Computed example of a mutant assay.
Amino acid sequence: MHNLRWLGLTLLLLHATAEAHLFKVFAYAEGNTIHGSVYFAGGNAVENAEITVKGKASDKPVSLTSNRKGEFQYSATTPDDYLIQANTGDGHQAEWLIKAEAFSPTATTANPTTPASSDSHSKRFEKSDQQLASLVEQAVAKQIGPLRESLQRNHDRARFSDILGGIGFIFGIAGIALWWRSKQANR
């Protein structure tokens, strides 16, 4: 019985330790800029994490470092699938993939400072529509990106129901072990 208590306590502590060291990276595209952050489950930011950004079409990965808030930025030259890998240097690693579709299609092609050509009234409106669409997409990405990050961080946290489930699992294992031990003692 004494050994069983130690086993239960050890399992409980191991579970808490594993949750505390769950390393995460999150990133999103806003226009042609990738914004991201690195953190441990529970929300603690990771300063000076090594960030590697590699585009599918690019041969050379780019190295970045997270700031004291665990944030980083990268200006993408072209819309591409980008794999973001984060490493704390002490064995914690995480990665995140941003698909090319996440980038604004007009972010690298539309230039709001370029005047519209005067040879056609419809071309002028078409260019204005592209510029407006680009501005709207960038504004929406600016608002939605941080919301998605907040949801992701909240999802990564251990919930009270998760903790109760873990404790119930431990008691279930202990009950099975005690039942088995009483069966063996009766024989």
Rank of each mutant, 00 (worst) to 15 (best):
M1T: 01
M1S: 05
H2T: 01
N3M: 07
R5V: 00
R5F: 01
L7V: 06
G8L: 10
L9Y: 02
L9V: 08
T10A: 09
H15N: 15
T17P: 00
E19S: 06
L22I: 06
V25E: 01
V25Y: 01
F26T: 01
F26R: 02
A27Q: 06
A27M: 02
N32P: 03
N32M: 11
H35F: 13
S37W: 01
S37I: 13
Y39T: 01
Y39E: 04
Y39F: 15
Y39K: 06
F40V: 03
F40S: 04
N44K: 12
A45Y: 03
A45F: 07
A45W: 03
E47S: 14
N48L: 13
N48G: 07
A49S: 10
A49H: 01
E50W: 15
E50C: 07
I51M: 04
V53Q: 03
D59E: 11
D59I: 05
P61L: 02
T65R: 11
N67V: 02
R68K: 14
G70S: 09
E71P: 00
Y74L: 02
Y74W: 10
S75W: 04
S75V: 11
A76R: 01
A76L: 02
T77Q: 07
T78P: 05
P79I: 00
P79Y: 02
D80C: 04
Y82M: 05
Q85T: 12
A86D: 01
N87V: 07
T88C: 00
T88V: 02
G89M: 07
H92S: 09
E95T: 03
E95P: 00
A100Q: 09
A102R: 04
P105N: 00
A107T: 06
T108M: 06
T108N: 09
T108Y: 01
N111T: 09
T114R: 14
T114Q: 13
A116P: 06
A116L: 04
S117Y: 13
S117P: 13
S117G: 12
S118D: 14
S120Q: 06
H121F: 15
H121C: 04
S122I: 09
K123A: 14
F125G: 00
F125D: 03
E126A: 14
S128Y: 15
Q131D: 13
L132Q: 11
L132E: 03
L135E: 05
V136E: 13
E137K: 12
E137C: 05
Q138E: 14
Q138D: 15
V140T: 12
A141K: 00
K142W: 04
Q143M: 07
Q143G: 06
I144F: 08
G145K: 00
G145T: 12
L147P: 10
R148C: 03
E149K: 10
L151K: 04
L151W: 12
L151H: 08
Q152F: 12
R153A: 11
N154Y: 12
R157G: 09
R157Y: 08
A158D: 09
F160H: 07
S161Y: 06
S161G: 04
I163W: 13
I167F: 11
I167S: 07
G168R: 08
I173R: 00
I173L: 10
A174R: 05
G175V: 06
G175M: 11
L178Y: 10
L178Q: 11
L178E: 14
W179L: 13
W179M: 14
R181K: 15
A185Y: 12
N186V: 09
